[in-house]
Amino acid sequence: MNIQIENLSFRYPNGVLALRRVSLEIAPGEQVAVIGQNGAGKTTLVKHLNGLLLPTEGRVRIGDWDTRHYSVAKLARRVGYVFQNPDEQLFTKTVAEEIAFGPRNLGYPGERIQELVEDALQLTQLQAMRNTNPYDLSPTWRKMVAIASILAMDTPILVFDEPTTGQDAASVTRLAMIIAELKRRGKTVITITHDIDFCAENFARVIVMGGGQVLLDGPARTVLGKAEILAQTYVDPPQITRLGLRLGLAEVVCTPQEFLDAFEKQCAA
């Protein structure tokens, strides 16, 4: 299901113009990271994808649905949105019930809900904690519960708002695995992140925002090499990319493996 954003402008009721004529197209199955300084308009942008915010000007289409004509509850069939703070959504007594809440709202048959919950538990490695109260889990695992509760809705598009904030290395690795699995299943994943390494290692396409506009949009390798434009929105390229640039490698590298390959090629030459 593709996403079409045409000339989207958004003004908050207090007068702040948070988005200025943003146009984007995201194809089905793309893995997109959205980066940029605080207040650049990242969250405002992704909140348009499931109708939490409606365009002041322009329009947003999810497949053939114009978000202005569908309620958030309806759009939840197409776009799953994981909020930053899991504590703002957890309310049931057990992890499994929490995960079943979304698919039940969407009206899936009982058997399918069962399957989806099992699948989400397994993806997030929460199987052993299925009967635990979410509030007895550590914040790291609570985040996983929140993610699982959206995964189980089986939407073609998933939005993550800063999934790595406050997570330990194990949890970040788990997240990377989840995103890789979603990619394998052909889902569209859009992630806001401040973790530039996470962005470089897991996303093929990077959108850089600043001042309510899209500053850069393209393959990670192209975008993350443009240090001057990134600096406008207070983003540093990943350390490994900067090292590569300093060493004058022929190509821009985003991951340690890419660095090693490029470095060997350089030495051989």
Binding site: K47, V72, A76, Y81, E88, Q89, F91, I150
Partner: peptide, 30 residues
Amino acid sequence: TIIAAQRSRGLDTESSFARRVQALVPLVGP
């Protein structure tokens, strides 16, 4: 924020009265 999060999970807060009453638990809990 809580209302936004639960609506994103397909919680119907806009239709019939009975639906709205049911919708209270996921909102008041968090």
